[in-house]
Nucleic acid binder design. Structure first.
Lengths: 196, 196
DNA sequence: GTCTATATTCCGATAGAC
DNA sequence: GTCTATCGGAATATAGAC
């Protein structure tokens, strides 16, 4: 079921590209219209206002990101927990267009939430789910580790990923270097869990 | 040599407060003028334009942050390298007014650099200095560790700190929890360096 | 150096035709 | 559903007096 390319989704795809280029707070409705190849009026017809565009774009991006995780070759042997863990963490540090767009949008959401209360609840919920996923994967690699240690390690790994992602997106380091650092952190955290 | 409170520095202090409240992209010259208790025209007199204000505010904040690190009771015994290391890392996660302002500004700088080439060079330089400082401290705790391992650990610790700082500032976690997680990461990294 | 206007630009949003 | 044209407000920036 490939998502039909309706006008609305065309605009949302364009919005993701513009946000990746200019940031949430740099998104101009006029530029979005140009990127999508439509008039500004049409944007206000499909979305109530600029805020509506942003809200729906984040939804759109979230859905898209959720789909990536599912992509797997059914022929290949099932991944080990350890592989799954690294996969989940390394997936976001890819120079691929859509993945990068998602990472930029996530960073923008995080940065905007510092100043906008309204964004915090959604962000907190999404973060919690993510941290719990990672904690569960860690638990499958180190089943004897106490839950509190797993939770702390998951918080650190995901926060580290966000920090490295920002450095990557802001031009401080390359994606492959960031991935290498993540792998090192996974090693270190698993070593720590082995001792608990 | 306490920095005299010139008009310019008054405005820069006000700018730091406004940025902490509204973000870089939410800073309005008019609001800044009100906060500083001057007219908008005066701001354009002292700083060429809005961008000039932002550039100088980041410089100002950097200088201010550099001063914190130096604050130490001359009576107390000198800190161990390990203590110094934790101090440097934990310093930024404080609910204190100016420290918080600095953290917010740093996060904004990082986030803005994703979209503005012009900011990247300064940011990269400041980050490099910081990472090297931390690597040097790690080296004093684990003198036998190879330089490349020290560098990687320093990159991870500082990136983790940035990630946790954003979570703290965006309301996801409390400062003391963030500090706890940092301490755990320091433990883990030092354990890793011990084996190299 | 500092202020009180005011000019200028930019951008979100709408009216109304097709 | 989509466009052209335009309005109105907000924010940056400047002119000119003191």
């Amino acid at each position: 079921m490939a998502s039909r390319s309706t006008r609305s989704t065309q605009i949302l795809e364009a919005a993701a590209r513009v946000i990746a280029r200019r940031g949430v707070r740099g998104l101009r409705v006029e530029e979005l219209a140009a990127e999508a190849g439509v008039s500004t009026a049409l944007i206000y017809y499909h979305f109530k206002d600029r805020t509506g565009v942003l809200r729906q774009t984040f939804e759109f991006i979230n859905d898209r990101a959720a789909r990536y995780t599912a992509v797997r070759d059914p022929e290949a042997p099932p991944p080990t927990p350890r592989e799954e863990l690294e996969e989940v963490l390394l997936l976001e540090l890819q120079d691929d267009g859509e993945v990068r767009e998602n990472s930029v949008a996530w960073g923008e959401l995080r940065a905007s939430a510092v100043f906008e209360e309204a964004l915090r609840e959604d962000l907190a919920r999404a973060t919690l789910v993510w941290v719990q996923d990672v904690a569960a994967l860690l638990g499958r690699v180190q089943p004897l580790a106490p839950a509190s240690s797993l939770a702390a390690a998951a918080e650190r790994l995901t926060a580290l990923l966000e920090g490295l992602s920002m450095r990557w997106l802001s031009g401080g380091i390359r994606a492959d270097h960031a991935r290498e650092l993540i792998r090192g952190a996974v090693d270190a955290e698993l070593a720590g869990l082995r001792q608990d």
